[in-house]
Design a binder for these strands. Sequence first.
RNA 1: GGGCGCUUAGCUCAGUUGGUUCAGAGCACUUGGUUUACACCCAAGGGGUCGGGGGUUCGAAUCCCUCAGCGCCCACCA
Length: 876
Amino acid sequence: MSISSKFEASTVEQKWYDYWLANKYFASKPDDRPAYSIVIPPPNVTGILHMGHMLNVSLQDILIRRARMQGFNACWVPGTDHASIATEAKVVARLKEQGIDKNDLTREEFLGHAWDWTEEYGGLILKQLQKLGASCDWDRTKFTLDDDMSASVIQVFVDLFNKGLVYRGYRMVNWDPEAQTTLSDEEVIYEEKPGFLYHIAYEVEGETKPLVIATTRPETIFGDTAICIHPEDERFQHLKGKKVKVPVANRWIPIIEDDYVDIEFGTGCLKVTPAHDINDKAIGERHNLDVIDIFNADATLNAHGLHYESQDRFVVRKAIAKELEDLGVLLKKEDYTHKVGTSERTKAVIEPRLSDQWFLKMEQLAEPAIKAVLESEEVALVPAKFKNTYRHWMENIRDWNISRQLWWGQQIPAYYYSNNPEDFVVATTPEQALELAQTKSGNPDLMSSDLRQDNDVLDTWFSSWLWPISVFDGIRNPDNEEINYYYPTRDLVTGPDILFFWVARMIISGYEFRNEKPFSKVYLTGLVRDKQGRKMSKQLGNSPDALKLIEDFGADAVRVGLMLSSAAGNDLLFDESLCQQGKNFSNKIWNAYRLIEGWEVDENRSQSVVSKEAIHWYAQKFQQSLELINDHFDKYRISDAMMTSYKLIWDDFCSWLLEAIKPAYGDPIDGQTYREVRVLFEENLKLLHPFMPFLTEELWQDMDTRSVEEALIVSTWPEVQSYDEKLINRFEEATGVIGGIRNFRKEKELGFKEVLALQVIGSTEAIPFESLVQKMGQLSSVSYPEAISEQTGGAFRANGLEFFIPLEGKIDVEKERLKLQEELKYANGFLMSVQKKLANERFVSNAPEQVLANERKKEADALEKIEVIEKSLAAL
RNA sequence: GGGCGCUUAGCUCAGUUGGUUCAGAGCACUUGGUUUACACCCAAGGGGUCGGGGGUUCGAAUCCCUCAGCGCCCACCA
């Protein structure tokens, strides 16, 4: 055994991780055991480890390690996500630094750079997970752009197309001008932003008074194709059917009527820009308006913007406001805060834009997923409060825009065979596409060179929604051994921020493609925030460096720190001091082991009564805690399971058991106690292993020579044995008495070293764990006068027993008298309140017997306490 | 604008069906303790009219109403 008095985490972590890897403990193959599988939420391939990963990876590792010990065939599948928009943005940025413009590259060249990037950074985050101890089956590592994964995605797209669920449509979508792609509704974040409401006067045909509209986006007047009023608005009846002139653009557009307009808002007059607003588009369709798109892909104005052409929309907004003001038609500019859609990834302000996109019909697909979570509860959300959010989203689900104008991702397998965008086929391979195209076009001479594949790629989430199935190849080979064995998986651990993006869609795809749930439990973690409650972010610089934390405190300590503060679904305010607490705990366990192993063992010595009783008690206490820990695990209260283990080890094992059996200084320990306490310590290590894998394996391996099969990681999670609850209670009575003695010492200012005599009325048999009380209370002996006529010392009560300790003038009598008088006053007051309650007719006649009995007991206790104090006073 | 949730000790949080073990835990704090595993420690202790107000009940942290503050989700008011 190492003699270091402190646990040095860094020296053992790599050693045991290598050992676990070398002996393939993480690897899983289908066998006769029941499976327990988890698929990791694949981090972005270019991502780096942050606190959110640390939290959810720790949780998964705890679950999977415990399952492994419970005899399940535990399989944790790791992997990364290609994260099309995020990764593409990073690659574009890097190329830019090198002076390369993406637009100058061919698709193939760009993808070459993207793959280079992936090779370079792709494995990093997984390596970082290993530092934390993650026991993933690394041989199964998947990447959402692996050939087999992509093939599954393409197959699913074709399948859904053939079912009539995937369609192509000219719709208004969310356009990210920075990434120059569309986004799904879920990728748009609405933020309150200050802006202005501009009141602009439009000249009306044949009228002297202008018509005033209110808008937040004056730059879009170039796209105006009508002014809209409410048909019943009294103020504008005389204007019906007339035309107005758009300022600056100097075009004449009609005044139309539509009851979409809110008479109360603004001026009650709305300018209609069908190309750039979803509502305006709807109005435009109802009234057959022209559609004028004024923007380029990067949200600069096009030729419709006249002298503002090629200037950015926000620059133009300011400039045109100035011009309108100069023209005298900007009547008012009032402050106005409104919600603006921004891109989740690039933060750019979203531009509603009309374009051809691919969509997936969701309503029908969502049905089984709604039932699974809300009715049958085949899939449980933990905590359950997220069911409401889930319900709301699912019941109002809208079609999913799955195409992206990017290159990094699965290219949409639609092939056009003419210049008419309606002339396309969808197929898994170009060969099949050609055949289909020849049939559909009626032209058997069509060549593969006549086919042009759609340029767009699929939304990243369109590959990750298959993750629990595709990692086991269950799309392409739906009846293979692996998918049949590992699917459905058990637990999914992830953040609520991707409940819709990912979790809901996985449930949908599970039922659609496997006719079965993808997992049974969804554990939704909270967001990791800093101590002040702020979200951790790069900008704020308040996110601790995850790897540095592990270096400073040790992986086990960081895991414990995270678990100490992480009730499911609640955000957790992370503070490094929690890791310090974890480190202290590691050190405590380490030193408990040093104590045990440091003892000299004497086989000739027999076991003392104290040791025997204490060991027997701890064995019971262990079972009771184990039962509680299991219950916490069953309810996914991992934090509570952790805390229960923490208290069992620190308080019960270290503070009580070890202190009880500890031989006097310099004395050896008897062989029996030594062996028994080691067995108990081994059991402790098992309970702690899921939380603190490195430290526990280190100690486990140090205790004995262990074969490969005997490693802690593959040991057996203890089964709950029946235990004697009365014994546990009795022990607690004993600790109560000891606490009473210690408190008494403190109150009377007696030293802890001072050996005292204790007297008890009645028999010593009434004292629970008498020899323990004697040892831990620093007592000379327990004496028991049958009847004390005259009390000779101070007194206290514990567990219904009355104790006296002769003080022989060791204390300040006057000080003591005052103190006791205070206590007496308080006790009398308490007694009165209880008696008042008992005198209440209605209480006595209505309260159940148990409650009444309790009140009577309180009364009796109070009376006794008063008696004790009075006796003590008399004895002074 | 609609919906959901939260508010308990200095901090972070538990509190299942109203009543025994209901006012708790961990940390922090205070006091005392250094030859005796661990000061990353030991022992003892002090902290809360359970966000405010009202109601139901013999009895409310728990149920109802209301007000205030905070958070989240959804939604096309220019």
